[in-house]
Amino acid sequence: MSENDSLTVVLVDDSPSVVAHFRGLVDCIDGVEMLGTATDGVEAVVLLKSLQPDLVVMDIVMPRMDGLTALRALRAEHPRLRVAMLSSLAGSRSRAEQAFKLGAVQVLTKPFDESKLRALFSSEKAHKTSAG
């Protein structure tokens, strides 16, 4: 698969264990490339000024700027940005509904595993292909 066909991803999460797990899983999945990580919403907004990933995967509860606030900010600045929320709070109806309303493409509950990420990446790759 050429580099252009890869799905490029940025992870936003303050937990080092989540970052390690996510990175480890991404390394095992063909056609997905980690472009970078941010530890909170503020860092994410700054990082996304210089990176243009196909997908941002973001936690909800984070210091300084939470994920829903960051989602609103990121979508305002990059309206076509694809963002999936990945959080222990994702099963909370109020948060999940808010995330979808703000434009999240998926809302996944922690703990997460390889099958969940594979399904997410697969649908995002399909979207990338169909969007040209």
Binding site: S17, A20, H21, G24, V61, S88, L89, G91, K110, P111
Partner: peptide, 30 residues
């Protein structure tokens, strides 16, 4: 939590406990 067998220092171990609590409490709040 990390699906990784590498050695972890005290800070990483504490972060793992914290992430586990985060998962438990997030699900409990939901």
């Amino acid at each position: 939590l990390t699906a990784c067998l590498q050695e972890a220092d005290l800070e990483a171990l504490q972060a793992a406990l914290a992430e586990f609590l985060n998962i438990v409490l997030g699900n409990a709040i939901a």
